[in-house]
Design a protein around this nucleic acid. Sequence first.
DNA 1: TAGATTGTTAATCGATTAACAATC
DNA 2: TAGATTGTTAATCGATTAACAATC
Lengths: 214, 214
Amino acid sequence: MTQSIPLQTLKRLPAYLQYLKSQPKGGADNVSAGQIAAALSLGEIQVRKDLAMISAKGRPKIGYIREDLKGDLEFFLGYSQVDDAVLVGAGRLGRALLSYEGFKEYGLNIVAAFDTDARAAGREENGIPILPAEKMGGLCRRMNIRIGIITVPAAAAQEVCDSLVACGVLAVWNFTPSHLRVAEHILVRSENMAASLAMLSRHLEEKLCARGQK
Amino acid sequence: MTQSIPLQTLKRLPAYLQYLKSQPKGGADNVSAGQIAAALSLGEIQVRKDLAMISAKGRPKIGYIREDLKGDLEFFLGYSQVDDAVLVGAGRLGRALLSYEGFKEYGLNIVAAFDTDARAAGREENGIPILPAEKMGGLCRRMNIRIGIITVPAAAAQEVCDSLVACGVLAVWNFTPSHLRVAEHILVRSENMAASLAMLSRHLEEKLCARGQK
DNA sequence: TAGATTGTTAATCGATTAACAATC
DNA sequence: TAGATTGTTAATCGATTAACAATC
């Protein structure tokens, strides 16, 4: 049973946890919403409201007990329980993600990667086997895989996505610029590089125009 | 002179352009907001309003002229004019980004990468030189670099960010989980993997609970 | 003309911020 | 007690959606 929280709040929770983890061990036992807000450039009231949602009890004048809050965040974000995932497309980006150790901390465990290229398949990366694409269906069903990570060329993304869904995947992490069409009960989360670049270059234009350099 | 448009609209514009580009050349000359909306799983009115902002004139009954709309989107997103950038941290992810050809299409040109590791420095990736960190300041100032991409370990991110800003960088693309504190006129755009994972695992939990598998 | 599609004005919705009462 | 900090209720803000008039 999980209470529903605002999407924007959910996005911020990992940052709170990251902040708490980054603090030195020897520090104070307590932490206030104001401290967190200042460190993350957020509003104090917003932080307090977010924390209230995951119901880590804070106390007036004192704040939150650091370790308790960490625990509550980890529990709420499901970092204690590990989700198995597969990755499709063992190109440069795919292999970079395979070799990233940080995902384990977030409760993500990539058990295998797949690639249509026979040269890539058969090798392994960071101890994770890279297998030929034909083996995907069997492995996903056998291991009850629910998360699929797509790092193939954009043109192949929809097809790969459909295959993953057919194998029982319920959540897709998309690193391609393609929009993926899926059934309603499937979640696609796209790492939207083009949108990021649009924001960066827009900001630049504003700043440089203001300086009269353009 | 750039009119200000809503942030959410700006995020969607690249998707519209991507859709238009993905369409076969031989197709119809016109495209309607409804078609785009259907293809990208968005609301028709929302698409129409977004397109109205970049003022590509659409005509009732007919829609937009495909090529004109592409041109307007590319102009507005600044894809015609190229921004030079440097990348700091030539690890696996950094090198994967260096070797990604797609950025050119988005008007981003990575001119050099930097790494403190002497073994990494001196080599090159995809024709882009990887230089020792000491050369960063000089090159950025000499080439008037305004965009910095950070792919170093999280612990070094803030320091690298500060150096970049000191060298004149105005927009930072952050691939680490660290929150970066910057002056007000600097834009940081973080590729927030932890937030993405939180959403994926939250979705999974909801779906699996509903099925009684938990 | 009739129907499809546009652009705009008004209504709704969700998230952020402000105000304030509660309490350690 | 006084001051700091919490949680909650109300106000504001921005974005989405609905309604509708305009037009090819």
